[in-house]
Nucleic acid binder design. Structure first.
Lengths: 129, 129
DNA sequence: ATGCTATATAGTAATGAATATCAATAAAGA
DNA sequence: TCTTTATTGATATTCATTACTATATAGCAT
């Protein structure tokens, strides 16, 4: 039960994220897919991007106060976002060394770091979900 | 020109964030303030929390896909959020040592790290804002 | 204390991102 | 081919937040 089906829409969405290669948002994916396949629904875009992120096929980059973006690069890496144009670029590297590496990247200017940990707090850890 | 005024509403909002002391959201601040001052508008809450964050009086904790929370603790620190109940707790410490420290904090279970850098990209750095 | 003026407020409409709903459609196995 | 059930398209709805605007008021000048 609950078997996943391979649909044309899913293929189009995955291809769009790969072709755009700019950490695309759902709206950008929608715009790209509709160029060739105008009948696709926006709900299908949102639905599948979320599912692909949950299954690990895509990485969801949540942007507080703005639309989420999706990355087809799923190996361990972090992101830099321009606070002016919202462009997102990959920052490769070991998390413990990343701050040292960033010092030698003169092309971008870091003005802030957004770091938070996610998991289970003391209360939820000892309770059933 | 553009002088800030000290209003009762601003005082009530700042006091609420301090009294709640739980990284309150705009809705939580609204609920708390209306207990004693029922005529305040929700727009006033949002407007002032944002302004206080911009001026550095409060720290805005943006949560992708959910409401922003506000912290009256403005010195350098990071956050842990429970993915089950969304409770937010402070994680003090130097960013370069934080990962080692976290290993000895057994009360919470880290399942993910959200890290991103904010600043100006190559294009925006060389262009006027 | 009184008046003036620009800032702030209350109330509500509007926006943007994302999810919920549901009848219709179509994968994939029998 | 038939049947089952995941998936889709279209739209309504939710949620967080901002925009709008007439009214009120803080703080300064008189």
């Amino acid at each position: 039960m609950n078997k996943k089906r391979n649909t044309l829409q899913k293929q189009l969405i995955m291809n769009a994220v790969r072709e755009l290669d700019i950490h695309a948002s759902a709206e950008q994916v929608f715009a790209h897919v509709t160029e060739k396949h105008s009948s696709i629904s926006k709900a299908t875009i949102y639905r599948n991007l979320k599912q692909m992120a949950e299954s690990g096929e895509l990485l969801e980059i949540g942007i507080p106060g703005s639309a989420a973006h999706y990355d087809h690069n799923c190996h361990e890496h972090y992101h830099f976002m321009c606070e002016n144009c919202e462009r997102i670029v990959d920052v490769e590297g070991d998390i413990t060394d990343i701050f040292n590496k960033i010092k030698y990247e003169e092309k971008i200017e870091i003005t802030g770091i957004r770091l938070s940990f996610v998991g289970l707090c003391e209360k939820c850890k000892s309770k059933p979900m």
